[in-house]
Design a binder for these strands. Sequence first.
RNA 1: GGAGGCGUGCCUGAGCGGUUGAAAGGGACGGUCUCGAAAACCGUUAUACCUGAAAAGGUAUCGAAGGUUCGAAUCCUUCCGCCUCCGCCA
Length: 417
Amino acid sequence: MIDLNLIRQDPPGAEKKFKQRGLKIELKALLKNDAEYRAALQEIEALRAERNQKSPAAAEDPTTRPALKTLKDTLTKKERKLNQLQAELNQQLRNLPNLHFDDVPVGKDETGNKVLREVGERPSITGKPKDYFDIARALNLIDTDKAAEVSGSRFAYLKNEAVLLEFALIQHAFSRLVAEGFTPVIPPMMIRPDIYEGMGRLAGDQKEERYYLDKDNLYLIGSAEHTLGPLHFNDLLLENDLPKRYLGFSSCFRREAGSYGKDTKGILRVHQFDKVEMFSFTTPERSEDEHHFLLSMQERLVGDLKIAYRVVEICTGDIGWTDARQFDIETWFPAQNKYRETHSCSNTTDFQARGINARYRSKHGTQFMHMLNATAYAMSRTPAAIIENYQQPDGSVAIPKILQPYMGNVKTIAKKK
RNA sequence: GGAGGCGUGCCUGAGCGGUUGAAAGGGACGGUCUCGAAAACCGUUAUACCUGAAAAGGUAUCGAAGGUUCGAAUCCUUCCGCCUCCGCCA
């Protein structure tokens, strides 16, 4: 949730940023509500003060009670109205995204994203590169036809080496990052609505993206991020505890409601996939550094696979709801002849922390932490990138050296007899 | 699914109608002592909002929302959450 004080301080500035995000948000109604709320609050507080002051005397002198009774009745009426105002105000606040940093590139959609650097060499493939999905099917690694019959579109059976490859990636991510001091976590994959709301993940049009279990009043998470953040729900840490870094593994569930027709073939966009995710809690002073640290971890993980990638800073029109700044890593897909998003890295500043009341204590007092999240490896997309980049002329797929130890030192995935 | 219990400050935990923002212990922070540290001792230690230049004052907060009352952490109702036992179960 956004800080109301920021809105009060500079309404035009906030409106400008919302506009840069492509949102038409008028703060006029909200500010009017806020002013009304504060006026009403003042009035009520004066009445309460009067009541509190006179009440003790009523214990001895019952004749003063009728007057206090009328005072109480008017108070009740006014309090009801105050509650209503507050509820409205809260609703309005929840519909506001985070404010991005001033130097985030302005743009209306993903075409406005800024490429920061390209790293690594693209593979030299003789002939026309084959699509990862065609290769995978030929090698009996993915079956979406059967999955469609059993579960519907955008589901897949991963089989054979695709499974081992996924486990290898997971193990590599954990061994690398646990060595860096990240705490390994397997978080819950379902979450309560109020916590989810606090994480800012039901706001805007994100709600449409979630699976909801009506019978139990629970949502399926769309990323480990969603339950890693609430690891410090209602917590008060000490400044010395920070930064706190976690590495979570979870399945991710997404309805892909707005993506009809996009990536319908294959497994780049599915309702369910696994992901290893980094999550950091830190101080406001250090959050930009932490953001770059997480990004550097991502580059190392992609670099380990020896696949070409580029780092992109996401522009205002494409940035996430909760984010003050977002980087993506896009990985090279030879057959598509372009980079595709495989990693995302976000600094949500205190936006999520305010929503889940995650604070820390420093010499300057108690304040909200800054919270950041970053993909380590997203399954299906990363294995797809490996398959497409490591394809061999004979139709087999080489396995990145760093993953071989996790796969029984097998060097290639070849067609089975 | 059946039966019962419980939700208080950073934590543990007392309080069960009126000087209770809330005892006590722990933790954290500051100080004394020390070459330094530990121990011991002394002190400090909630948050939000409102008025105010400040000093200060006011209001709210004991799971949440309602209700009873002049007055609620304390009584009532509903909801939410947690725990224990039994049953079922990877």
